[in-house]
């Protein structure tokens, strides 16, 4: 356990600059988008007042942070999309960076006196930590954005906004930060399953090289088919299906559990017995 935590820390430590860069970029882009949006709104109101001499409240609705988030959702989504892309790439790199280059850290990691599974779980949880830190930071940015918006908007023209509403003004957050925790659980559960399958495929490649690429793709494809099979065969638009909803659900859960167990087992087995530097 101690060794696992040390390795986890080491993995987080190695990624820290990229992680901070993503956090910084997200903050910069999103907060600028909010600020520019607020300034634009204020300017529109001032221009109206200058041209007509009438109070802008007559013509414009009160300024709302939620609406600002809705209007700037493209700029909110850009750093989020970039972060996702970086993390997906890093899910590969977290393994391959130890095998390739001037320094092959894999030699060291594989000859540590602790269990090799610690290396596997450290890399897995490191990726998850990055994901949840970025998501957590996104949540933190929302009230900060609201404060920035409130500083720019005149107090008498500002309408109160709720963070949860502002989050839902953005289409991307509907998937990343769904309203119900159950949905959050399902979305990220599927993400974690994909990551486990990816790790198993990477380790297949690392163990069998060229042939391993074929094995890896086959394994990933097989898992994908297995996962969507109940959705296609037992669920959707199939009111007369043989299985009841709860049975279809149980089958799906069993398949998911099977993929989790088999992917983790395969990954650990390969790392312990088959992988080579």
């Amino acid at each position: 356990m101690r060794n696992y935590l040390k390795l986890l820390h080491m993995e987080i430590h190695r990624f820290r600059y990229i992680l901070f860069a993503l956090i910084g970029l997200t903050a910069l882009v999103q907060m600028c988008a909010i600020a520019f949006n607020a300034i634009g709104e204020v300017n529109k109101r001032n221009a109206y007042f200058e041209q007509t001499g009438r109070a802008p409240e007559e013509f414009f609705a009160a300024m709302s942070y939620t609406r600002a988030v809705q209007e700037t959702q493209f700029w909110f989504a850009v750093p989020v999309g970039l972060s996702i892309a970086v993390l997906v790439i890093y899910a590969f790199l977290i393994w391959y960076r130890d095998w390739f280059g001037r320094s092959t850290f894999a030699y060291r990691l594989l000859s540590l006196p602790s269990e090799r599974r610690n290396v596997y779980f450290a890399k897995l949880t490191a990726i998850l930590t990055f994901v949840f830190v970025l998501i957590g930071f996104q949540l933190l940015l929302m009230p900060i954005g609201r404060a920035i918006f409130a500083m720019i908007a005149p107090a008498d023209q500002l309408q109160p906004s709720y963070i949860a509403d502002a989050i839902f003004a953005n289409q991307v957050f509907k998937i990343l930060l769904p309203r119900s925790f159950a949905e959050f659980f399902v979305n990220y559960g599927l993400g974690i399953i994909s990551l486990l399958v990816l790790f198993a495929s990477i380790l297949l490649e690392r163990s069998y090289r060229w042939l391993g690429i074929v094995y890896g793709l086959a394994y990933a494809g097989f898992c994908a088919l297995l996962m969507v099979y109940p959705l296609l065969a037992l669920g959707r638009n199939y009111s007369a299906g043989y299985f009841y909803t709860e049975e279809a659900y149980a089958i799906q859960m069993a398949i998911d559990a099977l993929i989790v167990v088999s992917s983790v087992w395969l990954g650990l087995h390969l790392l312990k017995k088959k992988v080579s530097v």
């Binding site: 190695r14 280059g101 001037r102 320094s103 092959t104 850290f105 894999a106 030699y107 060291r108």
Partner: peptide
């Protein structure tokens, strides 16, 4: 080994 096995960073 004949090469480095520690992270370059």
């Amino acid at each position: 080994p004949d090469h480095l096995t520690m992270p370059l960073s």
